[in-house]
């Protein structure tokens, strides 16, 4: 009996040690980075690990739709050290909640038309006129939900701008149909899945995320790809559209240049490490990693300064 108990106690102690061992390995507080969902690859595979190795600390990255993430942070349901957002919109939510003082631009991207290389329309998209090919009956085009995802709104702006730029009245409607078109609108994760699985011919995308997904794409001129703040006045600001909110009322949405902003959160657990992470994103090393992953250089000024 006694021998049994001892053996059990030893086993229990071993199990406990086994479970707690990995925790003890990280004596320092881990750094918790929250970011816009499309940045998963560059954050979790490149920037995060490089920073963690250099600083000898544990990196925890968490990506999600930028607005949802901002709202979770603003309501303090999630506590993090740094937030990296695409567009100023989600950052504004944190500014209003008093959680950030400033946000610095760390990278940029542009809207592209991604396509599946095995699609029957791949050849035409590669060498033809993209906006004509996208109107082909039978071609399956996908985009994300404009009600929840900035990218879903951006592809609509891009097509509205293309309508002006190529002087093709009715182009946006011919390619996209209604704003919430069930034939085209998919959840953020689902869109890429469908495109990669070959169940869609083409889809809207950020150049950065499309490169991460190793998909071919059509580049678009700066006047319509929402990447260049210097086109904001003359081009981007000339389009807008209405969207229904949860209460059923109509809201007008306008484009914002595709710049990624990083900010240290005021309720960070490790504010010093958080600031070093933001500095790292702006450093030559951080910028090189962004560039390798298809991101453009930071554009424009810091927010709220």
């Amino acid at each position: 009996m006694k021998a049994h108990l001892t053996r059990r106690a030893v086993v229990a102690a071993l199990l406990t040690a086994g479970a707690l061992g990995p925790l003890a390995a990280y004596a320092a507080e881990p750094i918790h980075i929250t970011y816009a969902g499309s940045m998963g690859v560059v954050m979790d595979k490149f920037l995060g690990p490089t920073f963690a190795a250099r600083e000898q600390l544990e990196y925890q990255g968490q990506g999600q739709g930028a607005y949802g993430m901002a709202r979770l942070l603003a309501s303090k349901k999630i506590v993090a050290d740094v937030f990296v957002s695409v567009n100023p919109g989600p950052m504004d939510i944190l500014k209003q909640a008093g959680l950030v003082d400033t946000a610095v631009p760390v990278a940029s991207t542009r809207m592209v038309i991604a396509y599946n290389p095995r699609s029957a329309y791949a050849e035409q998209l590669k060498s033809g006129t993209w906006w004509k090919v996208l109107q082909t009956p039978g071609l399956r085009f996908g985009r994300t939900d404009p009600a929840v995802d900035p990218q879903g709104q951006n592809i609509i702006f891009t097509l509205m701008l293309a309508e002006k730029y190529y002087q093709q009245p009715g182009l946006a409607n011919a390619v996209l149909g209604p704003v919430e078109n069930p034939q085209q609108v998919f959840g953020e994760g689902s869109l890429l899945t469908r495109l990669q699985a070959g169940q869609l011919d083409a889809a809207s995308g950020y150049e950065s995320a499309t490169i991460s997904a190793k998909l071919p794409y059509v580049t678009l001129p700066d006047q319509i790809n929402l990447s260049n703040p210097s086109y904001a006045k003359e081009w981007y600001d000339t389009v807008s559209f209405a969207i229904r909110n949860r209460a059923g009322a109509s809201e007008t949405v306008r484009p914002q240049a595709l710049v990624f902003y990083a900010a240290v959160l005021k309720n960070a657990q490790s504010p010093a490490a958080a600031q070093r992470f933001v500095d790292f994103l702006q450093s030559a090393e951080g910028q090189a990693l962004f560039r390798q992953n298809g991101y453009g250089q930071p554009k424009g000024d810091a927010l709220y300064r």
Partner: peptide, 15 residues
């Protein structure tokens, strides 16, 4: 469940 996700994105946790 999808509406829950959309509410979180658009209107925050209270909704």
């Amino acid at each position: 469940p999808v509406q829950l996700y959309i509410n979180l994105q658009n209107d925050g946790v209270d909704s």
